[in-house]
Structure formats: structure tokens, C-alpha cells
Nucleic acid binder design. Structure first.
Lengths: 344, 344
DNA sequence: CTGTTAGCGCTTTCAG
DNA sequence: CTGAAAGCGCTAACAG
């Protein structure tokens, strides 16, 4: 039942079909369905009824072509497989769906070329706006240059003026490190991604600042920058443990925290007795393992929601003033930190 | 640098602009850029050069309007926030991106209306195809009726003929239950979502089949159907423990496994000494907690990849024969199962 | 309040 | 091998 159509070719009904069926012109039909412009109630109702009966679905491309902008928003995240980005995307999707936008989602693996490619794709589809976790400055620049609103989320990179929502990474690095310092740790290993992104640079800076503030001298050899999916991540962490005897580890992202935890477990070290650990990002497993991992939690879903809200504002008012939001991370204390066993 | 354009209004360059600049006609430009049809090498090169210089990006809507089909694929999953669906989406995205399709991703919360709404949106944008974890039959029917290829993933629901890729849920339920039975459990609580989806029905059936095969009589009160985000999930699990004394629990999805684990932990029960647990879906935490949770693992990413591959085939050959793939789940034995402490 | 007209940017016959 | 012409389905002036 429900709107069965079975007349010959499978061409979906067009506005013209509707109009003909209802005995009006296409423009009237357009007005009736879009609700913009005058149309007598009686004609409107007839049109709506016919539309319903025919199962009319407006052709988005035709509309986009005409209006030069669409109801889709491009979203490019680093890696959909990572829980952090997945919930970022989920947050974005929530608010955009409510605002009746579709999102086209791409995972760009933080690769410059892929990022550019999706920027072009977004341009091609005349996206109403774009949300991106940038890995390179060029994509945002290209988009902005073409007049598409861009909001950067999680990190800032763009040289062009551009909305953004991030967390205070330096603060995050500081509270993690300070927490460890307060427990008496003096040799805190830092595992951090080797990028020049504001996230990692900020967390590193916070780590340093905490040391400085506490008057603790910092041994640079304790800082281990590690590539995103480096094959030798765990060996390098192991080496850090062997060669520089940290009494605690601060892993500045969820992947590194996981690797650190693996190494600790594989060596039979006990948390927090033999070594302390603070992670970054409150991913599920950190609260389920025993002992729970003390982490710097960031409001991931909220980050996504805010980014979407900012973009909506930008779409609404392209010339409005730049929005910038910096959310606060918080320390979630669980059981992975204790006093150092043997203090040097 | 890089393609700076600064001539007056911000209208992006069109094919006509290109053609004019290169001294040819729009049709030639079209042929040159699309690679279809004849065009002399020399003219083509000039055109490509001009396109590059002007930063030309083809207008996807115009193309879609003309060709009546687009390079986008609609993807509707139940809940992007759930790791399972997120990696499903990640798998889909991987292969579709390689095939140069964009995906528009929607989280439909397994709500009939939302699912229908996105089906219409996909129709409106003339999606080349759709991948869906169906919650209702109507969406797939609508799409299929309009000639859009649909592949169902994770569950099957459609009455219309339609490609699908799922796992063998009954087998999954059976191997989990059999494993428990073999350890001597005779009172195995089943936590299962209260849907009529093939996933849950299948797992339940497997649970029953395993009992039947083992000649173990089944106490129906041990079966607890629970809504997806029911507020009283954990109390109900607790009640099952109190009232019907199961010696083991089989939680038939990752959410329920998590809840079961919480209840077990909160009560101070020790796995596997006081009670045994088998989960479904190898999500990250199950391998990190101590003891690790024995689970029925499903190839989630692969599920997504196959679905995408199937869709690509369907797009390529709309009338080709129906594809149906059923992947095998496997039991991943870890430490959450032991003999029942006190066997009735 | 309604219809006519034009055109969004591209592709595709069909002649040249 | 190339160009002219038509049209995809919709909307936005602009007359009536």
C-alpha cells in the first residue's frame, strides 16, 4: 500500500508532475511545498495531498544548483575508528540532525592529500559548512577562500580566520603532571604524539609548566614523542622504562595510554605500586580496568556539539564575529597513581 | 600563492569560465575533465592547466542533476556512539572512500520515523545506494521501490529483495552457550535485547538450541529481554541473580555485557570464581579487564567492508543477482568462564 | 494569489 | 575531433 506507484518508467515524480496532477503551475507547487511565498490554503492543501499520494521527494540537487548552497555539512575527522573521533562525530551529528542538516563524514587519516581531497569534495557538493579536525592548514584555507564556513575542532591550525572549539590542552597537561608531582614523583615520563598540533604541543607545554611551577628540574630524556601509529610504540615505551627509570608515566592521548598500559601489564608491573600512570581522554576501558586509570577527561561529545552549534551560527551569519570556545578538561582521579615506590 | 583568485564576486569558476579562458566550448571542457569522449591531447592539456590555475571544482549538484545519480552513498546506523556501529561505519567508510564515494552518515536511533526521514533524505540527494542497519521495514522498502540499491548490514528485516551482510547469530549464541554448558553450567542467564531483530532472535535461538543439543532443560525465567537503553537494566540483572540463581550469564550484546559486568563488580562477585560471563562483540574493554571477558567476537570492521563492497557491486549492476554474506563469529576464550562453584 | 520566464552548471546527443 | 543546443528539476523575479 502506502503510495504505490506503478506507472511505467521509474522516474521519480517531479514538481512539474505534481503541478500537472493538481492543475497548477510548478512555481505554485514550489511555494506550497517550501512554505515560502503566497499560495491559497485550498490550493496548498491539494498540492500537499497530491505530493503525499505520489510520494514526492524534492530533488536536492536541483535545489542546490538553484540556490547555490545545500543542506549538507562536511565533517572530516582524523580517524573514525578511534573512540575519541567517533564520539566527536556523534556529537556533531546529533545537533546537525536536529537542525535538519545531513552530514557527510570522512576519515582523512590526518593525511594532507586526503584532507585536501575531501575539502574539494565538500566544495563540489556546495556544503553549507565544514567541521574539521585539521591536520594541515591548506584544507581550511581552500574552503575559507571559497567562502565556506569552517570550524576547527579539537585542534587549531588554520591561518585564515576561522571558528574553533578546543579544550585547554595546556591545562590538561598541567593538571595531570601536577597531580603526579604532588604525589612525589620527580621522574615523570611523557608519552606524546610527535605532531605540531595544538593538542600535543599544549599538553607538552603543560607538562613543562607544571615542572617549572613546582621547581622540579626536568630531564628531557623523559619526553618521548611518538608517531600516531608507529610500529615501535611499545618497544619505545619499554626502552624509556629501562633507560630512564621514570616512576610515573603521563600518556597524552588515549592510544598512548593504552600502549603504556599494555607495556606495564606485560612486564608484570603493578599499578600504582610499581609505577603510576595518568592517561588523557576518558575512554571506556580506563574506568573498567583494575585499578581504574586516572585520566584527564575531556568532554568529547560536547566538543562535537559545540562545534556543530558554532557552524550553525556561522551558516546563519557568515559575517558574524568569530566564535572560539575553549572547554576545560578535568582530572578524573582513579587508582593508577600513588607515591613513587623508590624515590630517587 | 596556490591558485589565488581575486576577481570581484566570489562565484566559483564554472565550466563555462574554463572554456572561455581556454578558448574552447563548455562541452569540450567537460569531455577533457571527465575523460569521456574525444578531445585532442593539446586542447586537453590546456584545459587541465587552466582548471588547475583557476582552482576549478566541478559542481556536484549540476552533475547529479544531469546524470540523475550522485557519488554519495547514504549510511544509516543505529547509534554512532556505540563502538560496534562506529566501527561498522569506519569499515564502510574505508572502502567507499577508496571507490571515491562520499558517505552521508546518519544515526537513526532505531526509530522508525527517523529512519524514514533519512531514507527520504537519501532519495532527495539521489544517493547512488544506501547501507542501513534496519530497525523497520519501511525505509528499505521505500528506497527499493524508488530503485535505489540497499544493503542491510548486521540485521535483516526487509521484505523487498535486498543485499545483506550479517553474522551467523544463531551460531554465535550457540557457541557461547555451549561453552558454558561444557563447563558444567546448568543455569545460564541470558541477557538479550527485546527486539524482533535477526540479531537478537538468532542469539536467543542459538542459546535454546545449545541447551536442546546438550539435553539440558531450560528454565525460561533465566531469559531476560531488555530494552536498548532501559533505565532499569542493571536492577533487572541484579534481580535475575537474586531470584533465579544462574551460575553463568550470557550477555548477547556489548551494552548488556557491560551492564552485567558492572553488576557483578558492584556486588563484589569474582569472575569467574563466583559466576561466569560470556559477552557478545569483542569491544576493547573486554580484553583489558582482569580477568579478560570471554566473548563471541564478530568481525565488525569486515562486516562494514563487505557491506560496502556489496553495495558497490549493486551500483555497478543494479539487476545483478542478490548478494548475501553471512560471516562467522568466533569464540574468544579469555578468563571469565570457569566451572560453577556450587552446582545444583 | 498565480503563471511565465529564465537560468543555476553540467552532460549529452547530434551535426559539422 | 569540436561546438551548438537542449534539458536535468527547481526557484525567484516579475508580470498579471
Amino acid at each position: 500500500m502506502a503510495g504505490v506507484v506503478s506507472d511505467g518508467p521509474m522516474r521519480p515524480p517531479t514538481l512539474a508532475d505534481l503541478a500537472r496532477e493538481a492543475g497548477t503551475s510548478a512555481s505554485t507547487a514550489s511555494r506550497a511545498l517550501s512554505g515560502r511565498g503566497y499560495v491559497s490554503p485550498i490550493v496548498r492543501d491539494r498540492l500537499l495531498e497530491v505530493a503525499e499520494r505520489l510520494g514526492y521527494v524534492p530533488n536536492a540537487s536541483a535545489r542546490t544548483l538553484k540556490q547555490r548552497t545545500s543542506r549538507v555539512v562536511g565533517v572530516a575527522v582524523t580517524e573514525l575508528g578511534n573512540q575519541f573521533y567517533a564520539s566527536l562525530a556523534a556529537g556533531i551529528e546529533q545537533v546537525l540532525r536536529e537542525a535538519d542538516y545531513q552530514i557527510v563524514l570522512v576519515s582523512d587519516n590526518s593525511d594532507r592529500e586526503q584532507e585536501l581531497a575531501c575539502a574539494r569534495a565538500f566544495l563540489a557538493m556546495r556544503a553549507a559548512g565544514v567541521i574539521i579536525t585539521p591536520a594541515d592548514r591548506e584544507a581550511a584555507a581552500l574552503l575559507a577562500r571559497s567562502g565556506v564556513g569552517v570550524v576547527e575542532v579539537d585542534r587549531r591550525l588554520a591561518e585564515v580566520p576561522c571558528d574553533a572549539v578546543v579544550i585547554d590542552n595546556e591545562l590538561g597537561g598541567r593538571i595531570a603532571t601536577t597531580h603526579l608531582l604532588e604525589f612525589g614523583h620527580r621522574r615523570i615520563g611523557l608519552l606524546v604524539a610527535n605532531t605540531d598540533w595544538t593538542t600535543d604541543v599544549g599538553r607538552l607545554r603543560g607538562y613543562c609548566a607544571a615542572h617549572a611551577f613546582a621547581g622540579v628540574e626536568l630531564d628531557e630524556r623523559l619526553i618521548v614523542p611518538i608517531g600516531f601509529h608507529a610500529a615501535d610504540t611499545e618497544p619505545r615505551i619499554a626502552r624509556l622504562l629501562d633507560e630512564h627509570a621514570p616512576t610515573a608515566l603521563f600518556a597524552a592521548n588515549n592510544l598512548l595510554a593504552e600502549h603504556a598500559w599494555n607495556v606495564i601489564r606485560d612486564r608484570g608491573l603493578r599499578l600504582p605500586h610499581d609505577i603510576s600512570l595518568v592517561g588523557f581522554d576518558d575512554v571506556q576501558w580506563t574506568s573498567m580496568v583494575e585499578p581504574g586509570i586516572t585520566v584527564v577527561g575531556q568532554p568529547t561529545l560536547e566538543l562535537g556539539r559545540r562545534a556543530a552549534a558554532l557552524l550553525l551560527r556561522r551558516i546563519d551569519d557568515p559575517a558574524g564575529e568569530l566564535g572560539f570556545e575553549c572547554l576545560e578538561p578535568t582530572l578524573i582521579v582513579r587508582g593508577s597513581v600513588a607515591q613513587p615506590y623508590a624515590n630517587a
